[in-house]
Computed example of a mutant assay.
Amino acid sequence: MIKKLGMWIAIVIAIGVLSAVQERLSVPNYIVGLAILGLGAIVIGFQIESRVRALEERVDRKDYSGIINQLNGVRHKPRHQQPESLEAGGARASDIESAHHMVFEDFRWFGALLNRHLPDWAIEELNDTRFRGDYGPAIGRRYNVWYRACQVGTIQVSKGSGRSLERERVKEERSARVELDLNYLRFIPYQVAHNFVYQIALLIGAYDFEDGRVSRAKADAAAAGSLGGHLWEVVRKPESGPCFDFYVDGPYDLLKHTFDHWKTQGLDPMVEWPGDWERD
């Protein structure tokens, strides 16, 4: 406030000096007018620079040191709270379809599988089966996502799009939708973030078991594309620190194949290692 008042006093004094000089030296009016315009341009430039500097200071001085310390900390040990059923997790029986039951059962070990492939992350299931999806209320499984010691987001799993209510059709057209929301992704190494998104895209999308290279390439492209779009938004809106959103809707061929193999081996990851891959 004092700086602004001083600036306006200086402007008034400068105009007074220009008027006195004009009278004494008979300076033409247009010269004085140009001088005043120039003075005004300097003042406006000063105001714009001050506001830009203030914005940069707000962005640069936002303190993320506590978050960064957690992101560099010791990995969180997931403590799963698996619901016994959709109803036990809060879903209303009248809202549940056959497809909901199928996806709920098929994804029983989803958190354990992700923890196996993502050593720096921890996926922790919640006792919450009725939640808000991208397109309204959803029913399924929900997880907290940790990167090392920092809780950074959520995963939500629900039935895929276009599901039929007929039980046999549901079995033939198996589909799930997985939604991933993450914060602070800009502080996490690219390859680590890419591997996370890649694993979800690979597990949920269609998979060619005769030649998996195409399926892996598609998952890789999906991960790179979504992370590239997020980077664009971070650069465009650095002050807001936008959340990273990713979703995939598919038949989850590789996930189902992996779990079927575990079942034939008599392996239950929630018993053998309580939903978390054994680590040294």
Score class of each variant (00 low, 15 high):
residue 7 M to E: 08
residue 8 W to P: 00
residue 10 A to E: 15
residue 18 L to E: 01
residue 20 A to R: 12
residue 22 Q to I: 06
residue 27 V to E: 01
residue 30 Y to R: 06
residue 33 G to M: 04
residue 37 L to V: 08
residue 43 V to R: 02
residue 45 G to N: 07
residue 46 F to R: 10
residue 47 Q to T: 09
residue 47 Q to I: 10
residue 50 S to P: 04
residue 53 R to C: 07
residue 54 A to K: 14
residue 55 L to P: 03
residue 57 E to S: 13
residue 57 E to W: 12
residue 62 K to G: 04
residue 65 S to G: 14
residue 65 S to D: 10
residue 66 G to N: 13
residue 67 I to D: 12
residue 68 I to A: 02
residue 68 I to Q: 11
residue 70 Q to D: 07
residue 77 K to H: 12
residue 78 P to A: 00
residue 79 R to G: 04
residue 80 H to M: 03
residue 83 P to A: 09
residue 84 E to N: 10
residue 85 S to P: 02
residue 94 S to G: 10
residue 95 D to Q: 12
residue 95 D to F: 13
residue 95 D to W: 14
residue 100 H to A: 04
residue 101 H to S: 11
residue 101 H to C: 07
residue 102 M to C: 03
residue 106 D to P: 02
residue 106 D to G: 06
residue 107 F to W: 02
residue 108 R to D: 12
residue 110 F to N: 01
residue 110 F to R: 00
residue 112 A to N: 06
residue 113 L to N: 11
residue 115 N to S: 01
residue 118 L to M: 02
residue 122 A to C: 02
residue 130 R to A: 14
residue 130 R to C: 10
residue 130 R to F: 05
residue 135 Y to D: 14
residue 136 G to N: 05
residue 138 A to W: 01
residue 139 I to K: 00
residue 139 I to A: 01
residue 140 G to V: 13
residue 143 Y to F: 15
residue 143 Y to Q: 01
residue 146 W to F: 10
residue 149 A to E: 12
residue 157 V to H: 03
residue 161 S to K: 15
residue 164 S to F: 09
residue 165 L to S: 15
residue 167 R to T: 09
residue 167 R to F: 11
residue 168 E to W: 07
residue 169 R to H: 10
residue 174 R to D: 13
residue 175 S to K: 15
residue 176 A to V: 02
residue 177 R to S: 08
residue 177 R to M: 12
residue 177 R to Q: 15
residue 181 D to W: 13
residue 181 D to N: 13
residue 181 D to T: 15
residue 182 L to D: 05
residue 186 R to I: 07
residue 189 P to V: 00
residue 190 Y to C: 04
residue 193 A to W: 02
residue 193 A to F: 02
residue 193 A to T: 11
residue 197 V to F: 03
residue 202 L to R: 08
residue 204 I to E: 08
residue 204 I to P: 03
residue 204 I to Q: 05
residue 206 A to D: 10
residue 207 Y to G: 05
residue 209 F to G: 14
residue 210 E to W: 06
residue 212 G to E: 11
residue 214 V to S: 15
residue 214 V to I: 14
residue 215 S to P: 15
residue 219 A to V: 01
residue 219 A to W: 05
residue 220 D to I: 02
residue 225 G to H: 03
residue 227 L to D: 06
residue 227 L to G: 03
residue 227 L to M: 13
residue 229 G to V: 04
residue 236 R to G: 03
residue 238 P to V: 02
residue 239 E to V: 08
residue 240 S to M: 11
residue 242 P to D: 09
residue 243 C to Y: 11
residue 244 F to N: 00
residue 246 F to H: 11
residue 249 D to S: 06
residue 249 D to C: 12
residue 251 P to Q: 07
residue 252 Y to T: 00
residue 252 Y to P: 00
residue 253 D to N: 13
residue 256 K to R: 14
residue 257 H to K: 05
residue 258 T to V: 09
residue 258 T to S: 08
residue 264 T to H: 13
residue 269 P to S: 10
residue 270 M to S: 05
residue 275 G to L: 02
residue 275 G to E: 01
residue 275 G to A: 04
residue 280 D to C: 04
